[in-house]
Design a protein around this nucleic acid. Structure first.
Lengths: 153, 153
DNA sequence: GGTGAAAGACGCACATG
DNA sequence: CATGTGCGTCTTTCACC
């Protein structure tokens, strides 16, 4: 992976609908060279998938909550994690350092949805001993973009 | 937006590289009908953009950290938020309820990168009075997928 | 590694029912 | 909304450098 591959990745992270000819103009290569490079990046798994970004407001899931979990150290966490990642309300599940064991990011319809999901679903999951939900009042940034371009710092 | 639009959104969230003819087969519509619907969803801003998912491991940014910030209530938070979202290390920035004011999600090269970003960058930002970084030991799920399909619960 | 050309598939618009 | 057509663009492959 060289500098041109990295540039292609950064461009496609922002807009994956660009054609190979436009990409070629941007990186100074021919259409077929761009095609080659993108295909190889896909084959290597560096480009994992093509996705769309959706207006979550329009589909009625605009409440973001972060839930801290403390778990029973006697039990393993495998069953808990399996239950968590199965739920479509759970966007992220991280095993964390610090006083709590897990940080779970939720996307929900409203506070009623949060209440029922925390009370009826999370608290019933195996090994959960403490639950601390917090609500996002606003979100100034939310992206998956990670620069492939090597920084100059 | 009807049930078919919602289904199209869910399919495209998982794989936006599918052709209109494949989409048509999946939802039981003709190519031109699918074309119409997807174009309208884009025009309405419900489909916001096309993106790629990247293997962050391959591009050398595999450390995830969550940083809690407490800010000076005397100052506004505008300048701070502006500084935060400018940094490419910052993937997410949420204004939160609870003891802290902000939760910031970072993607970094390694712990040295975390140390320098927290010490040299975040702590120097206007209005920051307390910084509590925590590291993700592992991440079991990390997605932006939000079901547009109306659930049956 | 790259280019350029050719073939086929796809996107897109339009007209008809 | 389905089907047809037409056309431009894009993808993909392949011979060549």
């Amino acid at each position: 992976m060289d500098a041109i591959d990295r540039k292609l990745i950064d461009i496609l992270q922002e807009d994956a609908s660009l054609s190979y000819s436009v990409l070629g103009t941007k990186v100074g290569l021919s259409v077929s060279a761009v095609n080659d490079r993108v295909r190889k990046l896909r084959e290597q798994g560096i480009i994992q998938a093509y996705k769309i970004a959706v207006d979550t407001n329009a589909i009625g899931r605009s409440l973001t909550a972060m839930v801290w979990l403390r778990t029973d150290p006697a039990k393993g966490n495998k069953k808990l994690v399996k239950s968590l990642i199965k739920a479509d309300e759970v966007l992220e599940c991280h095993h964390m350092t610090g006083r709590f064991d897990f940080l779970v990011k939720l996307r929900l319809r409203d506070t009623a949805h949060l209440e029922s999901f925390v009370s009826d679903t999370i608290k019933e999951m195996p090994g959960v001993v403490e639950v601390l939900p917090e609500i996002a009042l606003s979100t100034a940034k939310e992206t998956m973009f990670v620069p492939a371009q090597l920084e100059t710092d």
